[in-house]
Amino acid sequence: METHQSCFSDCKLLPFSSPLSELSLWGQPLSVSQPPRLLERVSTICRRRHFSFRTEEAYIHWIKRFIFFHQKRHPDSMGIPEVESFLNHLAFHRSCSASTQTQALNALVFLYQEVLDKPLGQMKGLSRVQQRHRVPVVLNVSEVKACLEVMSGTCQLIAQLIYGAGLRVNECMGLRVKDLDFVTGSLSVRDGKGGKDRTTLLPRQLIAPLKKHLLKVAQLHQSDLNRGAGFAAMPGALYKKYPTASRSLAWQYVFPSSVLRLWSDGKMKVRWHMSDSTIQKAFKVALKQANIHKHASVHTLRHSFATHLLSSGTDIRTIQLLLGHRSLQTTMIYTHVIEATKLVTSPFDKL
């Protein structure tokens, strides 16, 4: 069995929002001279099962928190009582939500079942946080228009596309040039939530601004090529299967980063997409400038997209497909928004 020192001597407790890059695991080759450490084994199995980057990030985060909660004891020496103690601590002392506790539970079940080969079984002492069904925050049409009008440049275009196509922020940032189809007025979302692909709307009014934007992307890409760079990170091992495709314009991100970074063991200089935080911060500023006092984020534009389609008579099944929801029940939450905002006359107004 691995010693506590060898497994966790370099671990440090991270806040909830810490990126996986701080764990020094993503993209690091495993050592062949010694057995892989616990978190390296977790990372390896996540990738073998084609889990998303965010899932791997979340699982490693919760496993680290679990270990430090029990004073760096190795999980192999713990079991159901320790798992229940940690999860109950999140519920009673950290006041976490039901979804947060469920995420932590899933991470630990994965650790014991898939990594340590010691399934936990039934946990009778676990106190689950009650699930609360909340209506999402939605901006009305006037508020959306006011927010978008005070924005400018690339951030404005990103926000317009998120609202116009109903995209998640990471889906919009991950768009490649080849994913836009100006002829059919559609765009393809690759490897969305749950690893699914889908096709959604490309607003006609955004075709001209996007074409103009892509001219700048092409110029930037040509400049990178002239400097011996111009590579785009490709999913899986596609860069090995199609070695020249990585330098083509088609694979470049629609919203590229302003800096080049090393990739593939430092052999390639690639230009990733913009950071999610860039548009998040810009949208927060826009809300303030537009004098909108709602607890909204850029993801609210996606909620607004669905709600406004439903208000205009689009059937719920079509909206489900456009949003990429696995279950219709997830999409049905927007019907509650519509019901709450129907034009019903208050009896007070009849006095």
Results as ranks from 00 to 15, higher is better:
Ser297Leu: 05
Arg227Trp: 03
Ser223Ile: 01
Arg190Gln: 15
Val141Met: 13
Arg247Pro: 00
Cys172Ser: 11
Pro19Arg: 06
Leu202His: 09
Thr307Gln: 08
Ile60Ala: 06
His295Asp: 15
Val270His: 01
Ser31Glu: 14
Phe8Trp: 12
Leu322Ala: 02
Ile45Pro: 00
Leu210Thr: 09
Tyr242Trp: 08
Asp197Trp: 14
Val135Cys: 09
Lys350Ala: 13
Lys342His: 12
Gln122Ile: 14
Lys281Met: 08
Ser346His: 12
Val337Ile: 14
Lys196Val: 10
Val129Met: 14
Thr314Cys: 13
His299Glu: 09
Ala232Pro: 00
Val42Cys: 07
Gln71Tyr: 10
Phe86Ala: 13
Glu22His: 13
His70Pro: 06
Leu343Cys: 04
Ala296Arg: 04
Leu309Trp: 04
Pro75Cys: 06
Asp181Ile: 06
Ser43Phe: 11
Arg48Leu: 11
Phe86Tyr: 14
Ser327Asn: 13
Met332Leu: 08
Leu323Trp: 06
Pro203Ile: 09
Phe86Met: 11
Ala237Cys: 10
Thr330Glu: 04
Pro19Ser: 15
Val83Ile: 13
Phe231Pro: 00
Lys145Arg: 15
Gln222Tyr: 02
Ser95Ile: 01
Val32Asp: 11
Phe86Asp: 06
Asp76Lys: 10
Val183Tyr: 04
Lys124Trp: 11
Thr300Val: 04
Gln131His: 14
Pro75Gly: 02
Asp265Pro: 00
Asp349Thr: 11
Ser33Asn: 10
Pro35Leu: 04
Gln122Glu: 15
Ser31Leu: 10
Pro19Phe: 03
Arg54Gln: 15
Leu262His: 11
Gln320Cys: 07
Tyr242Met: 08
His295Val: 10
Lys288Glu: 15
Met123Gly: 05
Lys240Pro: 01
Ser223Ala: 11
Arg247Leu: 00
Pro243Thr: 02
Pro81Gln: 04
Tyr239Cys: 03
Lys216Glu: 12
Leu175Pro: 05
His325Met: 03
Phe51Ser: 02
Ser152Tyr: 14
Asp315Arg: 04
Ser223Phe: 06
Ser33Gly: 01
Lys193Asp: 08
Met274Glu: 02
Leu30Asn: 03
Leu351His: 09
Gln160Lys: 13
Val42Phe: 03
Ala286Gly: 06
Cys46Lys: 07
Glu171Ile: 04
Ser21Ile: 07
Ala107Phe: 04
Arg302Phe: 11
Leu262Gly: 05
